[in-house]
């Protein structure tokens, strides 16, 4: 078990006219090795939820445990927590600040209090891992890079901390299709290397269906369902209730079945759809 969330409720600006409850009794459990998608309409509490995971938002009520770090403690070990849960915020390229790429990426590990050799090693590893040429880019200013490169550098800045849990808030927002594919492939690579648990907030249902083992569907500050993509995207009642859009694959499958071509399985990824179509043809 890597993350356990119990009955977490959070209100912004409590006791003012601006008070708004963003989370209402959220409970879920994320196992190590899972790729979890967090979806829901804007304002459904997704961002508030993930910011709880590394105590960017302090608990108001409820319990959260990340590995052995208890966030209900009066003074949780924030340094260790933030080294454990790496958070890539929305548009992470806007957090770049230092003169060179190398210095910027080393900001996180430095804050963890590592020694210089270890930092250098991690920075090289992180920059290489995000698909950039370390020797070529280390001394360049992060501000002169292209948009896609900036985002990679920003992600490198987080993974240089070698987090066991990688949380990404809308990692593919504002990118072109090619950039999207590259970032998604990168996340997979990171998951395979040292961040076994990945949590992604996304509005892009195709990428969620394609990559996630489980989906936490948020609706009005509550978890409407925490289940596999198949269970969620084929639950028409749930989809209607939460005004959720389907991934293209599911749309195709449903349209086919409406036209009388029902498939032998319920595909959510492209590969599954192709396999289902093949199987259908083989059986006539």
């Amino acid at each position: 078990m890597s993350i356990e969330v119990k009955d977490v409720t959070y209100t912004y600006s409590p006791k003012t006219p601006y008070a708004s409850t963003a989370l209402k009794g959220v409970t879920l459990r994320i196992e190590e090795g899972e790729y979890v998608g967090v979806i829901g309409k804007t304002g459904s509490g997704k961002s508030t939820f993930i910011q709880h995971l590394n105590a960017l938002i302090r608990l108001q009520s409820g319990e959260i445990k990340v590995y052995d770090i208890d966030l209900t403690a009066k003074k949780p070990d924030l340094k260790r927590l933030r080294g454990t849960v790496g958070m890539v915020m929305q548009y992470p390229e806007y957090q770049l600040f230092d003169e060179t790429v190398e210095k910027d990426v080393s900001y996180g590990p430095k804050n963890l209090g590592l020694d210089d050799r270890e930092i250098k090693e991690r920075v090289r590893e992180a920059i290489t891992l995000v698909g950039l040429d370390y020797e070529d880019i280390r001394d360049r200013s992060p501000f002169e890079l292209s948009g896609g490169q900036k985002r990679r550098v920003a992600i490198a800045g987080v993974i240089a901390m070698r987090p066991k849990v990688l949380v990404l808030d809308e990692p593919i927002a504002g990118l072109d299709p090619k950039g999207k594919q590259e970032i998604l492939a990168l996340v997979k690579k990171l998951k395979a290397s040292f961040s076994p648990t990945v949590i992604v907030v996304s509005h892009d249902m195709d990428s969620v269906a394609e990559n996630c083992d489980k989906i936490a569907l948020f609706s009005d500050g509550e978890i409407a369902r925490f289940a596999s993509p198949r269970e969620i995207f084929y639950d028409d009642e749930l989809l209607a209730k939460t005004e959720l859009d389907c991934p293209s694959v599911v749309k195709v499958a449903k349209e086919l079945s409406r036209l009388g071509m029902s498939l032998p399985s319920m595909p959510v990824t492209k590969a599954e759809l192709i396999a289902a179509l093949r199987e259908r043809r083989a059986h006539g």
Partner: peptide, 10 residues
């Protein structure tokens, strides 16, 4: 937002 992002980086 930036403060949060940098806090997330320790």
């Amino acid at each position: 937002k930036i403060i949060l992002a940098q806090k997330a980086r320790g």
